[in-house]
Write a protein that binds this DNA or RNA. Structure first.
Lengths: 201, 201
DNA sequence: AGAAAGTACGAGCTTTTGCTCGCATTTGTC
DNA sequence: GACAAATGCGAGCAAAAGCTCGTACTTTCT
């Protein structure tokens, strides 16, 4: 895999293709999306697409990388020092709001995050996304409850991530009452995490 | 659509084909499953499959029907009169345990329930499954809290259903520590529903 | 200017997949 | 036994989708 030297035009094309992939994935899900459609959406021939991405999975991986970066940036803004001592409802707020915002701005990412259908070898980017989100949640929980076994913290973070993923679709497709569903998501997370904080010991 | 007269052999074939479809769907999900693979698994030619099922979606619909029936039966056994007054943790137990049991006995159904990838027109059976589960949960909630607006009850039931679906995959694929994940699922549901019961009013 | 590498095209290949069709066999009914 | 309907086969069609390849243009470097 000898690293290929890219010109400025090539970098622009890659971003363009990822934009198009995000749109196409968002419309019908990853499985139903076609590489030819992505190329067409980007106003480019299939051959050009494959100049920059080895295959369909590479497109997914590129998008996932974008997501991780966007999420990290959003959370960096939302976490000031001392976040760990906030009351639970406010903490959940600080976690959830940026995640929803990022998903609203990047419709394609939900198709990767909610990856129930992907063939096994293609699911790698989705798994990494899940792991990234769970990692963030886990580190916040660990900061609040330093005495808990890491294994318990991890399991709780995974469950919280899955709850988030489960409601994401409903939230994104809701129009007028989106805030209502977001409130339900927060309530579910608060209820679950409160039990973890008070229990276990 | 003139109803076709079926012989006993035909009924058996249909059941056989649904068994095969459940296996094949369970292995790689609905989208990746092929009708030829289903026919082969049933030890039958593709032509025979299409004698009984008009298309791939009809297979999904048939399986979904099985699921609804199995779930209804399981819940009928789990609900004695007076279930509505049980403490919340026990009530959640009575709801969750049969659902998990049914899913363990019928591996194919998860592929239908967790139908994030299906093309729009094929998602109908999955939607019906979700509606059936949410309906059951909703009626239990309504029995406990008769004074709440039906709309709130419905929304809560939908969220509970999605939480269930989100953790189903992890629970089914867990081996040794399945009970641990089931406990997390119950905790999440208890936490969320407790907030609904004490709040709102 | 000239060479080398990067970018771009798009027809079409290869494989997959849902599904069909003509025909043979089995079952139920009179 | 005879006829119709139901069941069964399996090669193969038509469309879709991931991807390739020969060719031509553009940018960069010396």
């Amino acid at each position: 895999m000898p690293e290929r030297r890219r010109q400025a035009r090539g970098e622009r094309r890659m971003a363009q293709l990822l934009d198009a992939a995000a749109d196409v994935f968002a419309e019908n899900g990853y499985a139903k999306a076609t590489t030819n459609a992505v190329a067409a959406r980007a106003g480019v021939s299939p051959g050009t697409l494959y100049q920059f991405f080895a295959n369909k999975e590479a497109l997914a991986a590129g998008l996932a990388e974008r997501y991780r970066s966007a999420l990290a940036q959003a959370h960096e803004q939302a976490f000031d020092p001392g976040f760990a001592t906030l009351p639970l409802p406010e903490l959940v707020d600080r976690m959830v709001e940026p995640m929803i915002a990022v998903n609203l701005e990047n419709p394609g990412f939900k198709a990767l995050f909610t990856a129930a259908d992907m063939p096994a070898h293609v699911a790698a980017p989705a798994r990494e996304l899940h792991a990234a989100v769970a990692g963030r949640i886990g580190s916040v929980i660990a900061a609040r409850l330093p005495d808990r076994p890491p294994e318990d913290v991890h399991r709780t973070a995974v469950v919280a991530t899955q709850i988030f993923g489960a409601l994401l679709g409903t939230i994104l497709s809701a129009d007028g009452d989106r805030d209502r569903w977001v409130a339900e998501l927060k309530q579910a997370l608060i209820g679950y995490l409160a039990a973890f904080e008070s229990g276990g010991a």
